[in-house]
Nucleic acid binder design. Structure first.
Lengths: 107, 107
DNA sequence: ATTCTATTTTAGCAATATCTAAAATACTTA
DNA sequence: TAAGTATTTTAGATATTGCTAAAATAGAAT
């Protein structure tokens, strides 16, 4: 039973690690991080985000689709524009830690 | 001065985001995450880690070299074996958050 | 010195990521 | 309905990732 427990623990660890990997890969990109940081202060439309982040609309749209597919953001159309907002508490938690680490005034 | 401040802020944000990206890319891999998690409980040699994580020594060695290069771990030879240990408070902080998110008993 | 054990390095390959440019879609307004 | 605006989708090019297999190193033991 010891061996079986160990391999069960190992499989659980692998499963958790794979989930964490999928999650972290969404964040591990400077442009997507900037998008998410901009969304922390409230919803924004694509054009506004593109300007803030400095990306072509097409490139940004692909990032947004990815983040939405991963469940980190949601979108809502109102008139011509489509507004995106953060919807993941987990992402917000990690963003907060990253901000402490990388966005200090005096590193 | 407004425009210049904005672009300064934007450049600072880009710099921070790029640093965070480099950091996150090191973590955004299930095998490296498992390595780091094993090192949280203290130093280990390569063979032990390879067995715990289930990777070939060569593949593991390449991951370890990467993590070391990124400043997340250090190594020390004692006799035949080389021991690795975690040396990044930042990595530990993020690992702690990830554990809360992904390693709960009841998700 | 030769051999053994632990680990690293190199080369090469298949899969993934990310951009640009061009075409397509969706809603609005004239 | 035609034209305009906002956004998405597709295609393709280039770079990066992460493995395996084979060769190279480093220190220990015989």
């Amino acid at each position: 039973m010891e061996k079986r427990n160990l391999s069960l623990a190992h499989e659980a660890m692998q499963r958790h690690a794979s989930e964490a990997e999928r999650f972290l890969k969404e964040l591990a990109n400077a442009n997507r991080l900037m998008v998410l940081c901009h969304l922390v202060s409230g919803e924004k439309n694509v054009g506004d985000i593109a300007e803030a982040v400095g990306l072509s609309q097409s490139a940004l749209s692909q990032h947004l689709a990815r983040l939405k597919d991963a469940g980190l953001i949601t979108s809502e159309r109102r008139g011509l524009m489509i507004y995106y907002r953060l919807c993941s508490a987990e992402a917000q938690a990690v963003l907060a830690v990253l901000q402490l680490i990388f966005c200090r005034e005096h590193p």
